[in-house]
Nucleic acid binder design. Structure first.
Lengths: 251, 251
DNA sequence: AAACCGATTTATGTATACTTAATTTGGCAA
DNA sequence: TTGCCAAATTAAGTATACATAAATCGGTTT
């Protein structure tokens, strides 16, 4: 192994993966740029075997794209891709919500979600909202979406949602942060929270169609707002992975 | 490299991946069974480096599951998982259809789909349908779904659909084959074809909501029929990857 | 001057030796 | 007899040497 471990107890593979991902998300490696194994080895100071694994994992994750002739390139995303990913997640979460409503979702299972909902209520009630409260909201909102996904009880659905959410710009947190700079930010939060309330209610009452519909509306709102936010990119410091963005605004 | 190549021009990694997948799908490796790198090396006569890559790829594909302590196990699927995967694909295809309707989908782009549709028409018109025609139908149906997916023009959506369809029991072909032994098989084909016709019409007329609705109905029908088919498994010789199935019937 | 062919270089694919970690087994002590 | 600790074995993680294929550069020929 190398002379000294900067981070003990973390595998070389993971270390390389993290380092490369950071460089991609921070824009040090630009979209479209080719990255060979050897470069990755130099960059990460990790030998070829774990580096290769890291590259494959990043390809799987969607941040890299394999080049037929060998090697990888940093994947580029259009604004359309980003918006579609949000809509995609919303559609999947809609399915999850419907499954949650139609199946199990016993009172006991629902408890954590309802707790999370009331926590969110507390946070969103403040106006203006403090920085700490907003930060807590981001975390709690992510938790809400994760709990909802799990409530579906469907492994294939959970898997797909996790995959989509893993995209740095498609996670619930990313969206909330991205739209936080809009003038009507607090209103958006309130409307979103209303959606949360309705979906929990619908699940509790076994109204699958309603649960699904509200999650999709939730996503449609997100897409609309994110499109607005993308118009004036000055507000977007908070959107992770803006470095991956390439093309011009859509519409 | 090894003494002699059984298949020239194919990489060891790919060879290992194919060999392992075959063994998983054929049931030689049983669900839940642990498979270590060394076993995989013995089985495939490929050295550790490409074998490991093959294992990672198969994990990504969803056929294997990484064990925290190291190694992999063959993933087991319940009937619920299979049915959910079909519904999942239908939901995603619904989104794809809506995107296709709402966006581009110019007359020129629609041409291949309409051609495919009329090919399917020809095939489904026969009653009773010949073995060759049925086989052609399976292929053409897969093509139809692929064309529809592509028409969405949304890379993230296409990617997810491809992932789900890659599951051996969730591909359009798998479904058609699985329900082919039901008594009402030909009727099911006719209804499915009606759905195909409607979705193309809806896309052509830019009716996004209708396009989406019919694809979801298409999937709901599929789930219903597949559930029936799963009841009497004697009919299921044609369902690929039945070897992955573990639990008892749902409901 | 341009095009093609060959040689050299560079990068990926593969095999394997080595290292570290985990699991299992055997022995000893309570 | 049982439980725990230590030693040994086995497997995963890593580094690297080797092989092969692709790409580039230079030279020669037309």
């Amino acid at each position: 192994m190398s002379e000294r471990d900067t981070e003990r107890s973390v595998s070389q593979t993971v270390r390389a993966q993290l380092a490369l991902r950071d460089m991609i998300l921070s824009g040090t490696l630009r979209p479209g740029e080719r990255i060979s194994e050897l470069q990755a080895v130099e960059i990460t100071s990790v030998s070829r075997t774990p580096v290769r694994l890291a590259l494959v994992r990043l390809e799987d994750e969607g941040l890299l794209q394999a080049i037929p002739s060998g090697g990888f390139m940093v994947k580029a995303f259009s604004e359309r891709d980003i918006l579609d990913s949000i809509e995609l997640r919303g559609t999947l979460e809609g399915l999850a919500a419907r499954f949650a409503a139609e199946r199990g979702a016993s009172a006991r299972n629902l408890e954590p979600l309802k707790e999370c909902l009331s926590d969110l209520d507390q946070l969103v009630r403040q106006d203006p909202i403090s920085v700490e409260a907003f930060s807590a909201y981001v975390t709690m909102n992510a938790r809400f979406h994760a709990l909802l996904t799990d409530l579906s009880g469907s492994a294939p659905v959970i898997r797909q949602i996790d995959r989509v959410s893993a995209m740095p710009f498609a996670s619930p947190s990313a969206f909330v942060m991205a739209q936080s700079a809009l003038p009507e930010a607090h209103n958006i939060l309130l409307i979103g929270q209303e959606h949360h309330r309705i979906v929990v209610d619908a699940i509790e009452n076994r109204e699958g169609a309603r649960a699904e519909a509200v999650m999709r509306e939730h996503a449609r709102l997100a897409v609309r707002n994110l499109r607005l936010a993308l118009r004036n990119r000055t507000h977007l410091d908070l959107l992770p992975a803006l470095a991956l963005l390439t093309s011009a605004p859509t519409d």
